[in-house]
Amino acid sequence: MENSGTETLKVVLFQLNHETFGVPVDQVLSIERVPEMTRVPNTAEYVSGVMNLRGSVIPVIDVSLRLRMGRIKETKDTRIIVVDVGDFQVGLMVGSANEVIDIDPQSIEETPDIVGGAEARYIRGVAKKADNLLILLNLKRVLNEEEVAEIKKIKV
């Protein structure tokens, strides 16, 4: 993988549908409670809307819907992880975001075959954390609109 150095990788963990996901902490700007959002017409379904993040207008996407796991159910634990992927900032709506852990880059494995399907494109790798598996997201892909069109074509 890209991070084959000896230093550890800090990852923000979040839950979606009883699965644990992670995004590298250096891409995360902040974690927010769900604010009032404004719907954006004429856009993809998984774009939940735009929110006011201390004076900036930030789009929020429903990661669950984006990963084809169905629309997220908002609870009191629902959080928005604001990430910066170079070109833009986006809020990721997730089930809950609870901790930051260190993982050993060596323990990251390429996506196992069994994951398969279009969703595998968004996954950068799988790491072990204690007894559980943790899925590292490839944010660039998750947030790339063109990618969507491509997958849709494949599915048809």
Binding site: V40, V50, N52, S56, P59
Partner: peptide, 19 residues
């Protein structure tokens, strides 16, 4: 006027947003 940002740049019909 606040820009909608790169992520939504292809959304049609809006020139920006405001708070």
């Amino acid at each position: 006027i606040k820009p909608l940002g790169n992520y939504l740049k292809r959304v049609k019909g809006f020139s920006g947003a405001t708070i």
